[in-house]
Nucleic acid binder design. Structure first.
Lengths: 234, 234
DNA sequence: ACAAAAGTGTTAAGGCTACACCCATGG
DNA sequence: CCATGGGTGTAGCCTTAACACTTTTGT
């Protein structure tokens, strides 16, 4: 059969907003762009979609190239297609966002791309419309984290309640009451208490917890209320 | 400057999931596909993105062509790019979904496309991955409507509480208690009571309400709780 | 023994659900 | 006058937010 012959074809890229938590701060992974235009400027990691790969597949490939990581949390965010967004040639970009535990993977970064982790709150200017993508990812993260247990994707397999709370506080740039916080978290039934304490950051030590994976997967899409007054914080 | 010369270009389409409410039932607008492959089969309305238009723009153009309507509620849903999704040539499709008041626009449909409104619950088989798009739109609609006043986009400027409740019941395929429903709706402060009754569907007549537009726009993104037990219904 | 962080309980207020009766009107 | 759908109130329960003291242990 014929192709749709009269139509114009476009480049399709995927761009990844890669966020990581190191136990204290939320960070974003950026690369120094290797091609013109804007060579040497900071940019999201991205790449062109290849003839035989799907969009999710392309995003996973790009992530793997950069971080050596596979099977981390990733979801499609939004597609950007303003005609002028890439000045060289019109490119439609499908943005993905990725959450990972930064403590584990810090050192595995590919040298090839001159990648660097920046504080999400204070990162360099980005090329094209990447800043808009990052803003959208931030607001989506806050929105989703207020309703679903998505932030666990940023933590190690075992973690303490204080660590979890710091993460929430970092994401929402605010402080929560630890009594209410722990009650709310525990009431979800998502956490299993381990018989082991983290003793680095305090004398008393804080119990480790891990996710109840089955419960987590089964209830991930349920609407919970992790955040006291979400509308003030989103 | 040079183009990104070694990369493959692809067709980009937009496909619109157009939902309407006629006061009683939720419907979806489908067209008989005009081109091969699958000519004559039912399909979402779509079209190829043109060289100088953005994605949103393309979606609006497609919607305008089909319905004569402009400025109705529309948002980007998701992009679909599996290599085999269109058997003729690889096409990435950006799906949009649209909500409109069906009572107003029923008759303005373009003849050119042989469009028809179907019950959302019971529509014909669709080509390609359009069924998947419709399913995603349905679940997104339920999700979003449980948290945001999005369903008002499906109603006329003035409407009665019973009409609004029917709409919610249609969307969630369940029944709600009218006392709790009206209390919840009214407590949002989104509605203004008019001094006028709808007398078609009852002897007593039901008061018309309209949206408080300012309040609506300002609070649209706030998280509300329209639905009693959303997790059972999503 | 003290400093530093972890862990835990209570109360009061507001929100939620379940539930049943009266109202207005057209026929 | 009665059938039909519209409109409203309350009581009990649960959830939430606000709030402060005790525990552990390394130094």
């Amino acid at each position: 059969m014929n192709k749709y012959s009269k139509q114009t074809r476009f480049l399709i890229a995927v761009d990844c907003i890669i966020l990581g938590f190191d136990g204290a701060e939320l960070k974003i992974l950026l690369i120094k762009r290797g091609l013109e235009p804007e060579q040497g400027k900071w940019s999201l990691m991205g790449g062109f979609v290849q003839p035989n790969e799907g969009l999710d597949e392309a995003a996973n490939r790009v992530l793997l190239q950069l971080t050596g990581l596979d099977k981390v949390y990733m979801e499609q965010l939004h597609s950007f297609g303003e005609p002028g967004r890439d000045p060289i040639e019109r490119t439609i970009s499908v943005a993905y966002f990725t959450l990972l535990d930064l403590t584990k993977y810090k050192t595995q970064l590919s040298q090839e791309f001159e990648a660097e982790w920046f504080l999400l709150k204070k990162h360099p200017k980005l090329i094209f419309d990447h800043e808009q993508m990052v803003q959208l990812a931030k607001s989506k993260l806050r929105y989703k984290a207020s309703l679903h247990p998505i932030l666990f994707e940023l933590l190690a397999d075992k973690f303490t309640l204080p660590q979890l709370q710091s993460l929430f506080e970092e994401v929402y740039e605010t402080a929560f009451d630890k009594r209410n916080f722990s009650r709310k978290i525990m009431s979800t039934g998502l956490l299993l208490k381990l018989n082991e304490k983290e003793k680095e950051s305090s004398k008393k030590g804080a119990y480790y917890y891990k996710l109840d994976k089955k419960h987590y997967k089964a209830n991930f899409h349920n609407i919970l209320r992790f955040i006291p007054n979400p509308n003030e914080l989103l």
